Lab assay of single mutants.
Amino acid sequence: MSGNGNAAATAEENSPKMRVIRVGTRKSQLARIQTDSVVATLKASYPGLQFEIIAMSTTGDKILDTALSKIGEKSLFTKELEHALEKNEVDLVVHSLKDLPTVLPPGFTIGAICKRENPHDAVVFHPKFVGKTLETLPEKSVVGTSSLRRAAQLQRKFPHLEFRSIRGNLNTRLRKLDEQQEFSAIILATAGLQRMGWHNRVGQILHPEECMYAVGQGALGVEVRAKDQDILDLVGVLHDPETLLRCIAERAFLRHLEGGCSVPVAVHTAMKDGQLYLTGGVWSLDGSDSIQETMQATIHVPAQHEDGPEDDPQLVGITARNIPRGPQLAAQNLGISLANLLLSKGAKNILDVARQLNDAH
């Protein structure tokens, strides 16, 4: 009898209710805020589980004197976190989706994509230029951005401005803007500013005609071990179906173009009346040469937790077992079709030249 009692006690200790789920994140304040929001949602869904947040620095956090596009290494903000995932030191990792490459290392998958916040870019102005827009900034004003995508589009749109690289986390960039006289304004992701509670610093939100956004911008991705079915089931509740389908289309477009950090590629997606609209573009580094096109596809946005595919093969690095396969494939095909259209119009040449120029500098 006593033996059975011990077995029952052991089973209770090993039951999922007692389990601590370890969540990996970057150390920056924004990353911690984003991770806290994901953990809060998981806690609400699984009140019996405990969650421990483990923060670590990544290569991208450490190399702050070089433009991201020049470092010449993929997975700048993800490699150390993936290493911890691989060694079973954490069970899942919360990322900004735009930091996750469209091809993940073997053994990993994006197990959830959370509801997207505003994906557009924002302009934050130096205190002396508050009330201005990019259009009304004085001639030769210097605007800071760490992104080739932003610089290429904005140089084309605002030729009277000069664009220079600015690195560091959000706090560091804002301090550089406010305390030094080098920059009249800087460009940042609206979602990051909003998550930090800095709505009052948003001086201008850039519309798609001015600057399309990065693939996955404004959404959070939760990376897990691809074979860890328990954790895949656990994080599945975080999937937002519309965000998922938009981001599958965007990531398929980028992957098929073979774009990345070192080339200016941008997108804009919208879901309306059962249609998914995808606009994508590529630019030369100075913005003088560009190709942009829009395509659409009829896609039914499923309700969360309709029964999805059981075999769960990944699409552009994403596993969404609780979302039907048909809409996911339709979104992926839309991204591939748009990429093929741009490639047929000469996108590869623009991107190759951009890559060579970026590598040469």
Rank of each mutant, 00 (worst) to 15 (best):
R150Y: 01
S288H: 01
I336V: 05
D233N: 13
V123S: 08
L154N: 04
D178N: 09
E82G: 04
A219D: 01
V215D: 01
G168I: 01
S37F: 11
V124L: 09
F129G: 08
I336K: 01
K74G: 09
C261I: 01
G60V: 11
G192W: 01
D240V: 12
H199E: 10
S141G: 11
A112W: 01
V316N: 01
K27H: 10
V123G: 07
S75P: 12
G107E: 10
D228Y: 01
R321S: 12
S57Y: 10
A185S: 06
F158Y: 14
S337M: 05
N340H: 01
Y213T: 01
Q153R: 03
K128W: 11
R175E: 06
L232Q: 01
L193M: 14
E139W: 15
Q204M: 01
G308C: 10
H126K: 13
G308V: 13
P127M: 03
E242G: 03
S75R: 12
L232N: 13
D230R: 13
T102W: 01
I350Q: 04
I299L: 10
V23S: 01
V235T: 01
T59D: 14
F163E: 08
T294S: 13
T58G: 01
Q328K: 13
H83L: 14
D230Q: 15
L68W: 07
R149F: 07
Q153Y: 12
R195N: 01
E73Q: 09
G216K: 01
E242F: 15
L174P: 01
T145L: 07
N349E: 09
V39Y: 10
L161Y: 11
T190I: 15
L49M: 11
R32Q: 14
H239M: 05
L137Q: 05
L315A: 07
H199D: 15
P119E: 06
E73K: 10
L137P: 01
D311N: 12
Q314F: 13
S96L: 01
M212L: 14
E242N: 01
P208C: 03
D61L: 11
L97F: 10
R325P: 14
G317C: 14
L206N: 01
S290T: 01
R167S: 08
F158L: 11
A219K: 01
K345A: 13
L148W: 06
V143M: 10
R251T: 06
H120G: 09
P327Q: 15
Q34N: 09
T172Y: 09
G131R: 10
V316Q: 01
H268K: 08
L278Q: 15
F77D: 03
N200E: 07
L329V: 15
I205C: 13
P324R: 13
N171W: 14
G48T: 12
F253P: 04
R22Q: 10
T78L: 10
P208T: 08
A40F: 07
Q153E: 05
Q153A: 05
G216T: 01
V263R: 05
S69N: 12
K132M: 14
R201V: 10
E73D: 15
L68E: 07
E80W: 07
D228C: 12
C261Y: 07
Y277I: 03
T58W: 01
R173Y: 01
I33T: 12
V202T: 14
Q356L: 09
T145D: 01
K115R: 11
E179L: 09
L81F: 12
P309G: 15
D352T: 07
M271D: 15
E139A: 13
Q356K: 11
V265T: 05
P127W: 14
D240L: 01
G72Y: 10
I336G: 01
I166Y: 07
V235E: 06
A354I: 01
I53K: 11
H305V: 10
L42C: 08
H256E: 15
R321Q: 06
V267A: 05
Q204N: 01
L193H: 04
Y46S: 09
G48Q: 14
L30R: 01
T319Q: 01
K132R: 11
S57W: 10
L285N: 15
V142F: 07
A354G: 15
L64E: 01
D286L: 08
N340E: 01
I323F: 10
I291Q: 13
E223S: 03
T133Q: 06
N322F: 14
K70T: 08
V23T: 03
I21N: 03
D286I: 15
G216Q: 01
V301R: 09
K128P: 01
D65P: 09
L351R: 07
Q314A: 04
K132V: 09
T59W: 04
L42K: 01
K176Q: 13
D178S: 10
A252E: 08
F77C: 04
I205D: 13
T298K: 09
H126W: 05
S147H: 01
R150L: 01
L357R: 14
D99N: 04
S37D: 05
Q180W: 06
L278T: 06
L30W: 01
A55Q: 10
R150E: 01
Y46F: 12
E179M: 10
A189S: 08
G144N: 01
L92C: 12
K272L: 08
V202S: 06
L232C: 11
G24K: 01
P127L: 14
R32L: 08
G335Q: 05
Q180M: 10
K43M: 08
S69I: 11
R116D: 04
S28H: 01
T319C: 12
D178F: 06
F183C: 08
L357K: 10
V202W: 05
I53L: 12
Q180T: 10
G287D: 06
I299F: 14
H126G: 11
A152I: 12
L234H: 08
L64D: 08
G216C: 14
D352Q: 11
G259Y: 05
L148N: 01
F51G: 08
A31N: 01
S184T: 14
A122M: 08
G281I: 01
H256P: 05
K272W: 15
A112Q: 07
E210T: 08
K79P: 08
A122H: 04
G346A: 05
C261H: 01
R175P: 04
E139L: 14
P101H: 12
A339R: 04
G280N: 01
A40W: 10
I110F: 05
S96I: 01
P264Q: 09
L245V: 09
A214M: 14
I166F: 13
F158A: 09
A112T: 09
R225L: 09
Y277M: 11
Q356N: 15
V222H: 01
N200G: 09
D121I: 01
R195F: 04
R325H: 13
R26H: 01
E258L: 03
R150H: 05
D289R: 09
G221V: 03
D91E: 13
V103K: 13
F77V: 01
I336T: 01
L342E: 03
D99G: 04
P101Y: 01
V94W: 01
D178H: 12
E52T: 11
T319Y: 14
Q314M: 01
V222F: 01
G48H: 04
A191R: 01
D61S: 01
Q155W: 11
I166K: 04
D65F: 10
G48P: 05
G72L: 07
F158Q: 09
D228V: 04
S146T: 08
G197N: 04
S37Y: 05
L338C: 08
S96Q: 01
R156M: 14
N333T: 01
L148K: 14
A354N: 01
E182K: 07
I231K: 05
Q50W: 01
F125W: 12
G274I: 01
H239F: 01
I63H: 06
S141I: 06
R156N: 12
A31K: 01
G72S: 13
F125R: 03
D240F: 10
N171R: 08
L81A: 04
A266E: 04
R164T: 12
I231F: 01
H305F: 01
S37C: 11
I318Q: 01
N88R: 11
R156Q: 12
V123R: 01
A67M: 01
G144D: 04
R164S: 11
N169A: 06
D228K: 03
T58N: 11
P105W: 08
C114A: 05
R164Y: 07
L234C: 11
L177A: 05
K70F: 10
A360W: 01
K62Q: 15
S290W: 15
S344A: 01
Q275H: 14
H239V: 03
I350Y: 15
D228S: 08
A219N: 01
T58V: 08
L278W: 04
L245K: 04
D36K: 14
N169E: 06
T102Q: 07
G24V: 08
A44M: 04
V143K: 04
L244H: 03
R22A: 10
A55D: 11
V143G: 04
T59K: 08
M212V: 04
R325M: 01
E52S: 11
G131W: 12
L234A: 14
Y213S: 04
L334N: 15
S290Q: 01
A84C: 07
N322L: 06
L104T: 06
T294E: 01
N88V: 06
L76F: 07
G287F: 04
R116A: 08
E179I: 15
L97K: 04
K140T: 10
